[in-house]
């Protein structure tokens, strides 16, 4: 018999009465029965799921049967591992991460000497290669990012409100002078943009009727609020949430996101919360046809602050 034909094997065998090989369960027979029953319950529940699925049962029935089935199976398998398998404790040695001194020196030599030496010998070439890599990165990254979106330019400072723009509600209906009762509120958009992304996200304006006489919210805004109407940008100056809550008795506009509060009759000055600026006011007039229109755009950018925000325009 030669060694090529047979490699002798030496098994390390733990004796049957070795405490390391013993199950944890005090009564393995009982544990075995219980685990078997739990797993059978799991299978039963899974069959229940198949039936429930076939009957297109309600979601909670399908979730309940599937979840319970999987959970029971999991309990069974885990308990089998925990109580009926050899418990150990077993040990293994760690291998140190660190190589031997010899290995480390040879590795470093390869990197620093062989690699660095080649670079060092041709400094100019190395520099040109480095410049090439950098150029590649720049040339690659800039156009990729640039393609992701347009430059902001002046977009953030503009809305679609212009002189004479008709105010319409979300269904596109224009607002007649007597349409809204005192205390009434409606969200308005520039005519034609009521169902568009920019109309809803940028131009949204909240129109409030606070009385019947002209409303002057601040000096210099004498003509902005005809017939008791005031209109403010609905974009919160904090983070751009719609300032959707109107507290009629206190005449406050409240942002539901972070509870900034703006006084309606005082130029939407923020009196509470994190909003730093008043809501921009939209100057209104009543056209000869009795419909509400904008005198012009907002006198500043709407919504939250950003670097090149303009305050007049």
């Amino acid at each position: 018999m030669s060694s090529e034909e047979r490699t002798p094997v030496a098994f390390s065998v733990a004796k049957a009465d070795d405490p390391h090989m013993q199950p944890k369960a005090q009564n393995p027979k009982l544990a075995e029965t219980l685990i078997g029953l739990v797993m059978l319950a799991g299978i039963g529940s899974l069959i229940g799921f198949a039936v429930a699925y076939g009957m297109n049962a309600q979601s909670w029935i399908m979730g309940g049967t599937l979840g319970a089935g999987v959970l029971f199976l999991g309990f069974g398998i885990t308990a089998w591992g925990k109580y009926l398998m050899p418990q150990g404790p077993f040990v293994e040695e760690r291998h140190t991460m660190r190589g031997t001194d010899d290995e480390r020196e040879r590795f470093k030599a390869a990197v620093v000497q062989r690699g660095g030496g080649i670079l060092g010998r041709r400094k100019l070439l190395a520099m040109i290669a480095g410049a090439g890599m950098s150029a590649f990165a720049v040339v690659l990254i800039i156009p990729v990012f640039r393609s992701f979106g347009p430059l902001p330019g002046n977009t953030l400072n503009q809305t679609n409100w212009k002189q004479g723009t008709m105010l319409v509600d979300s269904t596109g209906r224009p607002i007649r002078v007597n349409d809204i009762a005192v205390g009434g509120v409606v969200t308005v958009y520039p005519k034609g943009l009521e169902n568009t992304d920019t109309g809803q996200a940028v131009d949204q304006t909240i129109l409030i009727r606070v009385g019947t006489e002209a409303v002057v919210t601040q000096q210099g805004r004498e003509s902005w609020g005809p017939n008791g109407y005031v209109a403010y940008s609905k974009l919160c100056t904090h983070l751009g949430c719609p300032v959707g809550l109107y507290e009629q008795q206190l005449e406050l506009l409240v942002c539901p996101c972070h509870q900034s509060m703006f006084t309606v009759t005082n130029g939407a000055e923020p009196i509470f919360g994190p909003a730093p600026r008043p809501l921009p006011q939209l100057p209104l007039f009543v056209g000869s046809d009795g419909l509400l229109r904008a005198q012009g755009g907002y006198d500043q950018a709407v919504g939250p602050g950003f670097w090149n925000r303009e305050t007049s325009g």
Partner: peptide, 17 residues
């Protein structure tokens, strides 16, 4: 393995109920 099933079971039960 059993524990994977248990986590899945709990998530499924939560999702159901």
């Amino acid at each position: 393995t059993g524990f994977l099933f248990m986590v899945g079971g709990v998530i499924t039960l939560l999702a159901g109920f």
